[in-house]
């Protein structure tokens, strides 16, 4: 009698275990148990507007400086748009976002020139920023890219931290765009008080050019393949979601062909130019002119201007350039 009852109990337990396993299996098959699903299910976090306050009198919206010394050119351009004190306050955390995506040397012009990154980092230090962080999501091997681009050593020497995945994480952010509603973005963007965009101007196989607005791709995690299928809309979406405090565009060495990866020195034209400004559309329009493109023919620029992110004309009108000597 007792043996029968125990057998029944064993069978009952086994049936319970079977039901539990079956349920688990069904849930797993439906993807309910995948960690990604729950990460994605978190409510996307809004990105704060990092845009700088309007300039006082005398400060330009866009300044271009030319000279063989990138650091001097950067200082001159930033001074002309109001000086670093306009953009960075003591104690603030400043995120610098260069293009540090490619396992290439500075001569190849695929990444932001290390001297440009170092100079902006030094300026932030002079403004007594609490933390200055240089970060990107490289396409190539991250550690090697940081080293070979020259950015890691230059930024560290200037008093900045250099971070890239997996040493930094991502947060699902609300982008509110027509293509990009929400996406994983470097958490540092959400944590920083100021975000300074440090793109390099260069050719791009798909979008025509890459400069400041396209540089935000480097903030994204996840699979980027989907973004490139509608690249102009994606760039405009990102531009609307991430508003930089300041953009300093590096056109010291401009890759005019073979972008974005490049590699040939013949495709790099030494222009010794740096632009600084608060209008991301104007900066990109200026970059387009360096590649002999009409900015009005670049769909993402037209889209960005249409969304009120800036003015193409401001980047193409006759600019009084600052020359900082040899």
């Amino acid at each position: 009698m007792r043996a029968r009852a125990e057998r029944r109990l064993v069978l009952k337990r086994l049936a319970q275990a079977g039901v539990a396993l079956g349920t688990t299996g069904i849930l797993a098959a439906l993807g309910v148990l995948s960690p990604g699903r729950w990460r994605g299910a978190k409510k996307p976090v809004p990105i704060r507007d990092h845009a700088a306050e309007p300039a006082g009198s005398g400060a330009r919206a866009l300044a271009v400086a030319r000279g063989a010394d990138p650091a001097r050119a950067v200082r001159a351009a930033v001074d002309a748009v109001g000086g670093i004190g306009r953009f960075v306050r003591p104690g603030e955390t400043v995120l610098l976002k260069p293009n540090m995506a490619w396992d290439r040397t500075p001569e190849q012009g695929a990444n932001t020139h290390p001297a440009v990154v170092a100079c902006v980092a030094a300026l932030c230090r002079e403004a007594r920023a609490g933390r200055v962080i240089v970060a990107d999501v490289p396409v190539h091997d991250a550690a090697r890219t940081a080293e070979r681009s020259g950015i890691r050593d230059a930024a560290l020497a200037a008093g900045a931290e250099v971070l890239y995945p997996p040493r930094v994480g991502f947060t699902v952010a609300a982008l509110g765009g027509s293509v990009l509603d929400h996406w994983e973005i470097l958490s540092l963007v959400l944590e920083a008080d100021r975000v300074i965009n440090l793109p390099v101007v260069k050719d791009h196989a798909l979008s025509g050019l890459t400069c400041g607005l396209k540089n935000w791709y480097g903030l994204l995690g996840g699979t980027r393949a989907r973004l490139h299928q509608d690249i102009h809309l994606s760039i405009a979406d990102l531009g609307a979601a991430v508003r930089p405090t300041l953009t300093v565009a590096d056109a010291t060495r401009v890759m005019v062909r073979g972008g974005p990866t490049g590699g040939r020195l013949e495709d790099v034209v030494i222009m010794n130019a740096v632009a600084a400004g608060t209008d991301p559309v104007a900066i990109d329009a200026w970059g387009a002119t360096l590649l002999h493109m009409d900015p009005s023919d670049v769909p993402y620029l037209v889209l960005a201007e249409g969304r009120g992110l800036g003015s193409i004309r401001a980047g193409t009108q006759r600019l009084e350039e600052i020359h900082v000597g040899a």
Partner: peptide, 15 residues
């Protein structure tokens, strides 16, 4: 082809 982004990022779609 589906994973070209891992090496060339934005050029993948063009390729």
């Amino acid at each position: 082809a589906a994973r070209l982004e891992e090496r060339v990022d934005g050029a993948a779609e063009y390729l």
